[in-house]
Design a protein around this nucleic acid. Structure first.
Lengths: 109, 109
DNA sequence: ATTTTATATCGCAATATTACGATATCGTAT
DNA sequence: ATACGATATCGTAATATTGCGATATAAAAT
């Protein structure tokens, strides 16, 4: 096996888990934080600042892009990556609904 | 390789990614939703309701427990799992800070 | 045209995850 | 004591992820 049985879950559950999986890695969290802080992120910067090889960072960027969390536009020689506002909002909404559905008060154990 | 280089990231980045990874699976999202709705969750119910084998669900429960997201107390024959309020709040806070750090307005591309 | 610079892709090895049958454990009822 | 029901653990196969060196691509500078 090793294959997630997506067909037995709802679209919402699958979508949320896909988005979460995309950001559930310290390198990708670090990358997103950099993109957010310096509003003009370039991959090369990341290679210098994080301790990962260029190929590895490029791969993480690709995963974030595939999940729709970031978008990249070619900026001459380099590529400018930034947050995709739509997906970011979707993530905030879905996750807010999910996390917010638990009201800590009456716990059974 | 295949081993995440945790040592080059901050504790916060590692902690958040660990929590996210724990909930980044549709089955575990489904399990958490059930636990939240029926405030007295029992593993056996899940086996009937989700389409996964008992061993698989037990394993997912263990992962959620290891991450500290749920806690289980033995309730006679069965086990009562519920949300761990502390971790849930931690996740909400950390994630809120992370997601909230992006202000959609001025995007560069 | 050639070199340089920035990023992407390929291919691979190491490790992790997912799923499940089989079996173990353990409290409860008989 | 034995059998039963609920959950956990073990072992294993299939697949996914992580990381990186090597190489490809492509725009800009020389």
């Amino acid at each position: 096996m090793g294959l997630t049985k997506s067909e037995i879950f709802t679209d919402e559950q699958n979508q949320l888990s896909t988005l979460l999986k995309a950001i559930a890695h310290p390198a990708r969290i670090a990358i997103l934080q950099r993109i957010i802080i310096s509003n003009t992120c370039i991959c090369g910067d990341l290679v210098g600042e994080l301790g990962l090889a260029q190929a590895t960072i490029s791969q993480h960027l690709k995963e974030l892009k595939t999940a729709g969390i970031i978008q990249g536009t070619i900026e001459g020689v380099s590529v400018c990556y930034c947050i995709n506002p739509k997906t970011w909002k979707l993530l905030e909404d879905q996750l807010g609904a999910f996390l917010g559905s638990y009201k800590g008060e009456l716990s059974c154990c």
